[in-house]
Design a protein around this nucleic acid. Structure first.
Lengths: 111, 111
DNA sequence: TTTAGTACCTTGCGATACAAGGTATAAATA
DNA sequence: TATTTATACCTTGTATCGCAAGGTACTAAA
């Protein structure tokens, strides 16, 4: 056990990076909300439904994503999200912004 | 001009990293609010007063920081903040958490 | 027909970043 | 001497957003 709640620290660090993660994952493959949660959980970037659904809706409203319904062989239909051209354009800028933040922090941390 | 507001993207990316930045800077030298803002601005991590003052107060209340007043030769007295042992302990954990987030994102982005 | 599994979504709360505005001290300028 | 400029502190109100909790609905198995 730590003096601090490390999970909470990581959660804090993740803030503001979630949108980038979602677009990155969808840039590789279309996915539905539950599978995104599973994938992020595996990568130790825990996200819960109450966070993800509104985020996906926001990104869809910004035309960064589109969606389509697909039948599932086991359970209710799935809402598959796909990244749009506009989403890819933003993703590219996010790559640069992220690089920038990482480099800046490396500088601040060691200087 | 970009299709997107890049500054806003960076602001988004910075969220959750600010506490880490503050502790990192104070780990090197004691500083007062205005000098912190100047240093972060130089590093292109723009922070405004309305963000920084409450953050410093929170960190002080968590005993991550202490402060002392010092006279200035040109202007009102300055409130110098210093990192505490507890602050350094948290900083160490933040280093690990940050590394983790950076690595995870690198994985997600390229996979 | 009830339970378990999967998938969708919303509401209410708390935390926090930012814009804007306010107070106070000291030095320079009119 | 009065005003302006520069520096430094701080607070209030608003908006955003992540999370906990709870709710709906479809399918298959018990």
């Amino acid at each position: 056990m730590n003096e601090f709640n490390t999970d909470n620290i990581k959660a804090q660090m993740r803030k503001g990076v979630l949108e980038y993660c979602i677009l990155s994952i969808l840039d590789k493959n279309d996915a539905y909300a539950s599978s995104l949660i599973a994938e992020l959980k595996e990568a130790k970037m825990i996200v819960v439904e109450g966070t993800l659904y509104p985020l996906l809706t926001r990104q869809k409203n910004q035309e960064l994503l589109t969606y389509r319904w697909e039948e599932s062989s086991q359970g209710p239909p799935r809402k598959y999200y796909a990244i749009t051209e506009k989403g890819r354009a933003l993703l590219k800028e996010m790559d640069a912004a992220w690089q920038d933040v990482v480099e800046t922090l490396a500088l601040i941390r060691k200087k």
